[in-house]
Design a protein around this nucleic acid. Structure first.
Length: 492
DNA sequence: GACCCTTTGAAGTGT
DNA sequence: ACACTTCAAAGGGTC
């Protein structure tokens, strides 16, 4: 990973920033100047953070290579412990943690990870509000209870349950929010109702993204607070010892061989059998900024529109997302960043690849049947997935080939408020050609995607499909819709 | 009951 | 480096 200093950190993703959103109007652009500066700072802080992360979190741990089971699990634990010790030596424990808003997941090392972000005052106006106001403090067993969160050093010895001033809308956004622990709900991963809708067995509840832990694989650890009992989470609340983190690392290793075999594939008898295991072990991706925004805004839009169909709601939400100011969006990018950070801490060995379905199974199958060509990818896959499961049918949907976007609804009374018309009912500028995507519209030196990943991006022009507009059969159709349709069309 | 649709963003894969 | 693909949430609709 390139070493980027704070000074040049703004180059990170800077290319994106050169693209202004012209539809916002000049006034708003002026208003956003300061916000952009904040975003710059956020991005720089992300650079620093990534740097710190890579150095302190033993990047090698996250590399997919040593995935195979027990042996690497032991190593993972060892490395995680070492990383933690190192950070504690380096004084990371004393750093203020931006995770004060996220109770029960106070990682000492996270403070170190994020400290530049807070220390330099580079938060956006929205993000700055993460600075704590007090909730009741939660004493952590084995740690001194300090009732004062006024100084950062206290953060290391207790778990302050600090609620964000935006608590009404922010904590529901985070997967680790107090709300996610509310008593009536059980952990989505092993709720009896889990998997009711989703093949992966993961509940679609609003809190579904609380990362589950298999109850079989992990003893249930009662939370110090009674209302948390019954929640099967990694035992972060019980103390953030290296051992605890290492166990998490081990846990995530445990997931590898099974969970990488597809939560979403179609249910064949074989996949069903394995699906039972997947239900317990599947670790979901952390939510991105837009997903967090959707989770927050969906109820409002639903209430306003009297429409529950998610595809329509999502269209509206997509529009609204683009109409947000950079400042407002920055809030969600920041949340998403923290989600990713937290996720990476909870599941050090997890990779988004673990949840991939069709590509890897297709590859595995291909190379099982034609073992003479083994790419590095399939090599990895084959070494990690059992042959039987690798032969599972691909999970990609087999669908009708022509299900283009729904026809434009004509002559019906719109259930949408005027300002919330879905795209088909409003005059939205036609999306740019397919080739004009995120990568190509950027100017200046391109940056690695991994670097730009968490930067609050400049809002690109809408790239996705024009809903309800019958897409032309060829090039001008949207990226997502087109590729998905092509994909489906190519399915057997 | 499983999957589709629809959105944006993150991250993985392939060339 | 870049293009492409998959998945994350949601819930009504479809088969």
């Amino acid at each position: 990973m390139p070493q980027l200093s704070r000074e040049d950190g703004d180059d990170l993703g800077a290319s994106d920033e050169l693209i202004a959103f012209k539809d916002e109007g000049e006034q708003e652009e002026k208003r956003n100047v300061s916000a952009e500066r904040d975003l710059d700072d956020v991005k720089s802080s992300l650079v620093n953070e990534s740097e710190t992360n890579s150095s302190s979190d033993s990047e090698a741990d996250r590399r997919p290579e040593p995935r195979p089971g027990v042996v690497s699990r032991g190593r993972q634990s060892q490395l995680s412990e070492e990383a933690l010790r190192k950070q504690q030596r380096d004084g990371g424990v004393l750093q203020p943690s931006p995770y004060v808003g996220y109770p029960f997941f106070m990682f000492p090392d996270l403070g170190n990870l994020c400290s530049p972000y807070l220390a330099n005052g580079a938060l956006t106006a929205g993000a700055r509000t993460y600075l704590p106001f007090q909730w009741p403090l939660l004493d952590v067993p084995g740690r001194a209870s300090v009732r004062d969160t006024a100084t950062p050093s206290h953060l290391s010895s207790s778990v302050p349950i600090v609620q964000h001033p935006h608590v009404s809308h922010l904590h529901p956004l985070l997967s680790y929010s107090p709300e996610a622990f509310s008593p009536p709900r059980t952990s989505p991963g092993f709720s009896p109702e889990a998997g009711k809708r989703h093949p992966s067995g993961v509940s679609r509840s609003p809190h579904a993204s609380c990362y589950p832990v298999s109850p079989g694989a992990m003893p249930q650890i009662p939370h110090p607070l009674g209302w948390l009992q019954g929640q099967h989470m990694y035992p972060m609340a019980g103390g953030f010892s290296p051992a605890a983190l290492a166990m998490n690392a081990s846990m995530s290793r445990l997931h590898s061989p099974v969970s990488r075999l597809c939560p979403h594939r179609k249910a064949t008898p074989e996949t069903k059998r394995e699906g039972d295991e997947d239900k317990k072990l599947h670790i979901k991706k952390p939510l991105n900024a837009f997903m967090l925004y959707m989770r927050e805004e969906r109820p409002k839009v639903v209430a306003m529109c009297k429409v529950k169909e998610s595809s329509s709601i999502n269209q509206i939400l997509g529009q609204r997302w683009h109409s947000l100011t950079k400042d407002e969006q920055a809030k969600y990018y920041e949340l998403a960043r923290q989600e990713r950070l937290l996720h990476s801490k909870l599941y050090p060995g997890w990779s988004a690849r673990d949840n991939y379905v069709s590509m890897k199974t297709a590859h595995a199958r291909h190379h099982l049947t034609q073992p003479h060509t083994v790419s590095h990818l399939t090599h990895t896959h084959l070494s990690q997935a059992s042959p039987a499961s690798s032969l599972d049918s691909p999970a990609t949907p087999t669908t009708s080939l022509a299900s283009p976007a729904a026809p434009a609804p004509t002559g019906h009374t719109s259930p949408y408020p005027e300002q919330l018309q879905p795209l088909s009912l409003t005059t939205k500028p036609q999306r740019p050609p397919l080739s004009l995507n995120r990568a190509t519209i950027t100017t200046g030196p391109s940056t690695p995607s991994s670097n730009t990943a968490s930067s609050p991006p400049q809002r690109p022009p809408p790239l996705r499909s024009q809903p309800f507009l019958a897409p032309p059969p060829t090039s001008s159709s949207s990226h997502g819709a087109l590729t998905q349709q092509l994909r489906r069309t190519n399915q057997p």
